[in-house]
């Protein structure tokens, strides 16, 4: 086991602050403390080589977890052991072994080319020259940024910059890499390239922990999904299980020769009745089997066209957040 987390908790203390002018003046003199329980006891284990997605709405505790696991924040309670280290103790030794890309916070230096920033990390992580050259060459090729790394960072597009952030974070060949919203704001092509890169690195044995709002990231990358809400883990299993979590559902759209019946039966939920001859609906297979449904509709209305789809992952997640 490369990561072992046990009953992690975190409580934040903050102060109430008004919005209006009057309240703002008042807040200069009196402040009310507010306690927020960001994590209420989180436990999980991650094996070497896993690619785990962390999901959750804003303020669910994702970032807090990530900050604790990267050694930036001390938890209020609980244990964590990563590669034999407790992240928030012995920070320097620990972070030398991990990599991190925080989508909103750049490690690159704005006014100079990424390659100069790479050399800075080479010194900071004491990467031997040969290993540095080899890793750099490999990653530059994988991401297709040979030309870009010599241009000033400020001239690069967001996608190009993000590719360079990945190189920056992985030059020292970390065993575990933490990613926070790595594809935020990127176009489809850049997203694909970065996902490909992550998968390739994962095949080489790197463990990834990924937090994101982009469910496409999860669908493309993660074998395992941990969903956090209100500071607690509400789901921790494979992506397929996640899809099935709220019952095996299918999305069906159907058009018929004769008017459709009411279809008020357990397991059938009409989501959109377009006309008497056309409708979209959700079918819960545990309550009503697909072949029975088709037979029923065909008998009553004669099917002209019918399509069956899996529900969008978004829908599943929304169900979990409630």
């Amino acid at each position: 086991m490369i990561i072992k987390v046990e009953n992690l908790t975190k409580v934040f203390k903050s102060y109430q602050r008004g919005n209006t002018f009057g309240e703002a003046v008042k807040s200069l003199f009196v402040r009310k403390p507010i306690y927020v329980h960001a994590l209420k006891g989180i436990s999980f284990n991650i094996e070497e080589g896993e690619l785990v997605g962390f999901l959750g709405p804003n303020g669910a505790g994702k970032s807090t977890t990530l900050k604790i696991l990267t050694g930036i924040m001390h938890p209020s309670g609980g244990k964590a052991e990563i590669m034999g280290y407790t992240p928030w103790k012995d920070r320097k030794k620990y972070v030398a072994k991990i990599g991190a890309v925080f989508g909103q916070k750049s490690q690159l230096l704005w006014d100079i080319p990424p390659v100069d920033a790479f050399y800075l990390n080479k010194a900071i992580y004491s990467i031997p020259e040969r290993s540095f050259k080899k890793t750099l060459h490999k990653m530059v090729e994988l991401l297709g940024v040979e030309e870009l790394i010599k241009k000033p960072t400020r001239q690069l597009s967001l996608g190009e910059r993000m590719k360079c952030e990945f190189i920056m974070a992985m030059l020292h060949k970390p065993k575990i890499v933490f990613l926070d919203e790595p594809t935020i704001g990127l176009d489809v092509i850049a997203k694909d390239k970065i996902r490909e890169f992550i998968l390739e690195m994962n095949r080489n044995g790197v463990t990834f922990i990924l937090t994101t709002h982009d469910l496409d990231d999860i669908a493309h990358l993660a074998q395992r999904v941990i969903v956090v809400n209100h500071g607690e883990i509400v789901f921790d299993d494979s992506l397929t299980t996640l899809r099935n979590y709220l019952g095996v559902k299918k999305i069906i759209s159907v058009s018929t020769m004769r008017p459709l019946p009411e279809l008020r039966l357990p397991g059938i939920k009409i989501t959109n009745r377009i006309s008497d001859y056309k409708a979209e609906l959700e079918l819960d297979l545990s309550k009503y089997e697909l072949n029975k449904f088709i037979a029923l509709v065909n008998k009553s209305s004669t099917i002209m066209d019918l399509s069956v789809q899996d529900p969008e992952i978004e829908e599943v997640i929304k169900g979990l957040y409630h």
């Binding site: 900050k67 990267t70 050694g71 930036i72 920070r91 320097k92 030794k93 972070v95 030398a96 991990i98 991190a100 925080f102 909103q104 916070k105 750049s106 490690q107 990390n121 900071i124 992580y125």
Partner: peptide, 14 residues
Amino acid sequence: RTGQFLTFMLRPLS
């Protein structure tokens, strides 16, 4: 203030 200080905490460096 910008939170970029994080990127220094993530590196083995004072």
